[in-house]
Design a protein around this nucleic acid. Structure first.
Lengths: 134, 134
DNA sequence: ATAATAGTTGCGCTATAGTGCAACTATGCA
DNA sequence: TGCATAGTTGCACTATAGCGCAACTATTAT
């Protein structure tokens, strides 16, 4: 992995959004990796929205993404050290509205649908499924 | 001090700007407090610009300001804990361009002009002095 | 091949952030 | 009382960020 030259404020900019904080919080709190459809079912936000936010986080050096067939798995990094410290901050963030907790509960539930540790099912939440037959 | 209810992303938003990072870096690295004119001479940015950035940092709960006569002193906080961790992140930030180091050097120089630990002289940098007689 | 689906992205829209200028307030000193 | 100065802020301008929609790519299954 080559450490791109990223301006310091870019990293904070990447965390300066509630949706992106929810994503990072989920991955950092569980240490898990997650594909997009699992995130859609956990955060209850449309895939195009999360996809763009994931790109921003990736470009800021806050997570890494790996393609596996149709799925793309996103997970936290292990370097550099100040990114680890940032993860600590995110973990220590207050959760007055219980949003992080709710995301986490849905995520854990959603992980049960995995088979052999891999996601196999696509978006489950009714309102975010792509035009499925009712 | 009452801990206002500040959305998590506001804190990161406040650090998502290079000028504000320079301010925080200076205060956190030295543990010093600083008035506006000292910051102007250290960062070489106009006072109206820094004043506004300081307000944003204050409102985000990243520093506190205290008026003393004509001067207003700004300094880091000691709570809550995740703000301390954020200070740690800022301290650990890479300084590839040497901007933080240059700010710090000018700041330390500028501190020599204090008398009894207090600033008494106003803006020294030529280009940022308010319409002084040439 | 072709359909289904996991994920991405261009476009247009709106909201907000950062800036310089200039006017403003507030404090101390002659 | 009036001036100098530390600091703040309203205004207009520009740039950028986030959004929904819809079209797109890529991969798997039939």
């Amino acid at each position: 992995m080559h450490l791109a030259r990223i301006p310091s404020d870019t990293v904070f900019q990447a965390l300066a959004d509630e949706t992106r904080l929810r994503i990072i919080h989920l991955l950092v709190e569980t240490g898990e990796e997650s594909c997009l459809c699992e995130l859609v079912d956990s955060l209850l936000e449309p895939s195009y929205k999360l996809s763009r936010h994931l790109k921003i986080l990736r470009q800021a050096g806050l997570l890494t993404s790996q393609k596996e067939g149709r799925w793309v798995y996103h997970r936290m990094l292990e370097e550099p050290s100040y990114i680890m410290r940032l993860y600590d901050v995110v973990r220590a963030l207050p959760d007055a509205d219980g949003i992080y907790a709710a995301d986490l509960a849905r995520f854990r539930e959603r992980l049960c649908l995995r088979d052999g540790g891999r996601c196999l099912v696509g978006i489950q939440s009714e309102e975010f499924r792509a035009e499925a037959v009712d």
